[in-house]
Design a protein around this nucleic acid. Structure first.
Length: 322
DNA sequence: GTCGCCTTCATCCCGCTCCT
DNA sequence: AGGAGCGGGATGAAGGCGAC
């Protein structure tokens, strides 16, 4: 049963907004585009693996994607967590092309691209072991003890060549197509139920309650001041910020029209600036001259708001939820 | 096709309230 | 006190639709 479904990471939308809002030729463009590709690849891998897990019997396997629990001293995040009456399984998904080498001596993963370029990463086996320790500690704080927690690193890319420098990988690292078999083997290992149906339901709720969404701050991450962002309403057709409001949005450049182009501008604002906006901030960011037109647009969105008259603040969270 | 009528909706304007 | 923003009414442009 899917308890926390596989969803596109918030960060992808944020970085796409950032790329769109940065002036053309901005020095940060290449690195942000590179990061978007990496996160997208990671997500694609997690999606593929999660999709395979949907074949598990619903009543005995509870699936959580991207669960982030508040550990000490930092929160810890798991790509996929599987909760069964017999054991818990943390799955770390890697979606790397080319050849990957697990190096136990320096606890690193070395990836060789198809073009011969090598890159080093944190060893995912150690990474997922740390997650296991964090999870056990976290469970202890919830007065849940003695649960068997297993870990697994899954390579989601079928063309990846996996090698081990000096470490036995069997049962620790697998290709995605083996995951159901691997889980079946674990089930054979744990013959006794550690959790009753009731306890499973309780633990599932505790885990879900413990989840905290990480809200990235892309401007801080890349050291970009908000003043560097282009203001105005974006034209989806010609990719300029030359849309103007005349009963509807009309692009100066290509004459394309839209009725709701202000919504994506507001989403950019939530992703990059802050989750609330005043009438004046709205006008500045979207380059709207008329305060009353701005008000009509804001009220038409039925946003939650606080304050009166001059103190009116519109809350934009609903634009990015769901 | 176009003319006229009606409806809808964006924008403007004004008076009021509230915050700084 | 002045500026900013709200609500609500007035206005006018745009669009739909039927009659010709």
């Amino acid at each position: 049963m899917i308890i926390k479904d596989c969803k596109m990471p918030l960060k992808i939308g944020m970085l796409e907004s950032l790329v769109r809002r940065l002036p053309p030729g901005h020095v940060r463009h290449p690195s942000i585009n590179e990061d978007i590709k990496k996160i997208q690849a990671g997500y694609r891998g997690e999606y593929r693996v999660f999709h395979l897990l949907k074949a598990l019997p619903e009543k005995d396997y509870l699936l959580f994607h991207d669960l982030r629990l508040s550990g000490s001293p930092f929160p810890f995040q798991m790509d996929i967590l599987i909760l069964t009456p017999f054991f818990l399984l943390i799955v770390e998904v890697k979606n790397m092309a080319g050849e990957i080498l697990f190096d136990n001596t320096f606890n690193q993963l070395i990836r060789t691209n198809p073009d011969g370029k090598t890159e080093a990463f944190d060893d995912p086996i150690s990474q997922v072991s740390r997650q296991r320790i964090h999870l056990l500690e976290w469970l202890k704080t919830k007065k849940i003890n003695n649960l068997p927690v297993e870990t697994l690193v899954v390579s989601a890319n079928s063309s990846t060549i996996i090698r081990a420098a000096n470490k036995e990988l069997k049962g620790k690292v697998i290709r995605k197509d083996r995951i159901l078999l691997q889980i079946a083997e674990l089930k054979n290992k744990y013959t006794e139920e550690s959790l009753s149906k009731r306890a499973i339901k309780r633990l599932s709720n505790v885990l879900l309650d413990g989840h905290t969404t990480f809200i990235p701050k892309p401007l801080e991450t890349y050291g970009i001041p908000s003043s560097a962002l282009q203001t105005g309403v974006f034209c989806q057709k010609c990719h300029t910020f030359t849309m103007e409001r005349h009963r509807k949005w009309i692009c100066h450049t290509c004459l394309d029209t839209s009725h709701d182009a202000h919504i994506s501008a507001l989403i950019d604002y939530v992703y990059l600036v802050k989750p609330s906006i005043t009438n004046s901030e709205f006008r500045n960011f979207l380059q709207i001259k008329s305060p009353s037109s701005a008000k009509k647009l804001l009220t038409s969105l039925n946003l939650k708001h606080s304050g009166h008259t001059k103190g009116r603040v519109y809350l934009l969270d609903s634009l990015i939820e769901g």
